[in-house]
Design a protein around this nucleic acid. Structure first.
Lengths: 227, 227
DNA sequence: GGATTGTAGATTGTCGACAAAATACAGGTG
DNA sequence: CACCTGTATTTTGTCGACAATCTACAATCC
């Protein structure tokens, strides 16, 4: 008998995990003010569950870096500071560079096709000047080569680091970078990834530089916003 | 009035955190067989606490990468495979390289003194052929420049990556063979870190290469052990 | 007025009990 | 004998209640 895998997963997911997903989305969308305490009793009323699954959810959120748990004080939504961003990007730059390098070594036809598809989507979004769509496919493009590295340590760390930048999604919406220029950089990255003769080290530097440049632009953008 | 922050932290530490510390040490020392399930009821009897703090402890252990929690199945001690080590080292190599680079930019007299002290301790341990002592000071040496990077993202990630047990268990045996060589590498790293005119990129490469070489030696050592 | 202390309310920490799911195993069936 | 199937046992998931701690604020003291 055939079964709907997704619904089974959903059934198997404990209450705590479902609440985690809802809270994760809420935090990323900025529905909580930074530094705000998540009161167990309040959330208990909202979700209609006891405190046990809530406390499980808090621990998972802490692992994802979205909240900070202070013993006997409470669970607080993390505020992302300027320094957090400055700390985050250099790490991401090196690890995504490494991911690209390892992905190149393990490249196969399917991954190339997947990357090509997202690249085409980015191209179309850039031509039609649809930033939201562009950044979505841009994010998926990066996810694909990160997964293709098959390095679980890398995949896990970057999952968390990239989630933080999502936190700033609302900022990105108004962040108008030259989409065509960004597309060309990724076209270059794609061509190197798809070329078996390309040099791993060169790919690593290419991706690392791309993120460092994006970081610089982003910081400058934030500074103009803050004034 | 001045207060000892650390002791306050300890008093405030909830049962779950104390249990976490005990279980962390037990896992790192290999007192659980790999893949073994941590049964809540059994640990309940051992520690004389209810299941709530145990479940909290499991979540913290999961965050540290020491166990894996599978919903409705249980909490299992992670087995470290050959692939885990292969995934871990390239990441560590790049991130410790980055940490050294950032530490160099923020170097001050106290940090130089701290590094010098550990380096001297490594020298003495190498001369007296005391691998255990050498490994300890080597680990502290790395911790100092990682902390000196003042990059909290880096510090947190490297704390987890460096925790993994196999490295702890075996490293001092490997270093037995070339303590003096290892000392000279760190003397070189120290001199560059302490020199304000040294090039950041050079330091990054130096530390990265050191870990990659250590990784290669470690893998070869493991292969001889496995046979 | 400013600092200290005491108290009430709010909030997290821990517990034991029950529910739900996974597992182990015995018995049946082809 | 291999394969189901139902049942008993084990184990995790959730709950409500109580204890310990923290917080806010008013009363007190200097």
């Amino acid at each position: 008998m055939l079964l709907d895998i997704d619904s089974i997963e959903f059934q198997n997911a404990a209450l705590g995990e479902k609440i985690t997903d809802i809270l994760t989305e809420a935090i990323l969308e900025g529905k909580f003010s930074g530094g705000q305490q998540l009161i167990e009793q309040d959330l208990q009323k909202i979700f209609g569950v006891s405190r046990s699954p809530l406390r499980e959810a808090f621990r998972i959120l802490e692992k994802r870096g979205l909240v900070r748990i202070i013993p006997r004080k409470g669970t607080f939504v993390k505020t992302i500071t300027h320094k957090d961003i400055e700390d985050n990007f250099p790490v991401r730059a090196r690890l995504e560079g490494l991911a690209a390098s390892e992905a190149h070594s393990k490249m196969n036809e399917k991954t190339v096709d997947d990357l090509k598809f997202e690249l085409e989507s980015m191209k179309h979004a850039a031509q039609r000047i649809e930033p939201k769509s562009f950044w979505h496919h841009h994010s998926v493009f990066h996810n694909i080569f990160i997964e293709a590295s098959e390095n679980q340590v890398l995949i896990d760390i970057l999952y968390n680091l990239r989630m933080h930048s999502l936190w700033y999604q609302f900022s990105y919406k108004y962040y108008q970078e030259d989409l065509n220029r960004a597309y060309k950089i990724h076209l270059n990255i794609f061509q190197k990834l798809a070329d078996p003769d390309a040099d791993n080290q060169e790919i690593e530097h290419l991706v690392r530089n791309h993120i460092e440049v994006a970081f610089g632009n982003f910081l400058r953008y934030l500074e103009t916003q803050e004034k």
